[in-house]
Amino acid sequence: MGLDHQTLVAFAKSWGLFYLIALAIGVLIYAFWPSNRKRFDRAKKSILDKDDRPGD
């Protein structure tokens, strides 16, 4: 193993945090992006449609 323990720990502690924040922001933007509203509304209602056969 080329990397020593301290380096890995430092990496895990710092970049892990950046990663978390970036991810959270990305997800929030996606969820609240105005043009996505219609798709989400359709998705949540579509499961209540009739579903006897594939392709309905």
Binding site: F32, K44, I47, L48
Partner: peptide
């Protein structure tokens, strides 16, 4: 939702 006959309260929340 299917059994209640109502769509999920917030789809956005489910994604987050």
């Amino acid at each position: 939702p299917k059994r209640a006959g109502r769509p999920i309260f917030s789809y956005r929340l489910s994604i987050i």
